[in-house]
């Protein structure tokens, strides 16, 4: 992506994000949002993070690659287990990175 395109993209995201924040405070007199929007918002984060993680781990160059000898999926599995047990973001990152270094040297 060119520098200009990147700046335009970030500006657009910034403006839209600001409009979300300003919408009900400054623009519209309406005091409530439809129930479906509330319901939808609860699922946006898990859906986005899951899609991005799956893609990072198993998609390379537009193709799905399920390789048993790839270190990143295994490191991710270790990280997920630590996250499940501890609920701690920093511990998860630490364990995941440590596992990645270990598996890179093993495989």
């Amino acid at each position: 992506m060119s520098l200009e395109a990147m700046l335009a993209l970030l500006a657009a995201i910034g403006i839209v994000t600001f409009l979300y924040r300003y919408a009900m405070i400054g623009l519209f007199a309406k005091r409530s949002l439809p129930a479906w929007l509330h319901a939808l918002c609860r699922h946006i984060a898990p859906a986005s993070f899951a899609a991005l993680t799956a893609s990072e781990l198993f998609v390379h160059g537009g193709e799905v690659v399920l390789a048993l000898a790839a270190p990143k999926p295994w490191a991710a599995l270790v990280a997920a287990l630590v996250a499940w047990r501890t609920g701690n973001v920093l511990a998860t990152i630490g364990a995941g990175m440590a596992a990645l270094y270990l598996f890179k040297n093993l495989f």
Binding site: A45, P46, F49, A50, L52, T53, E56, L57, A75, A76, A79, A80, A83, W84, G87, N88, V89, T92, I93, G96, M97
Partner: peptide
Amino acid sequence: PLTFIALLTLL
């Protein structure tokens, strides 16, 4: 992505 995994597990 490790951060996403941590947040995902909580969610």
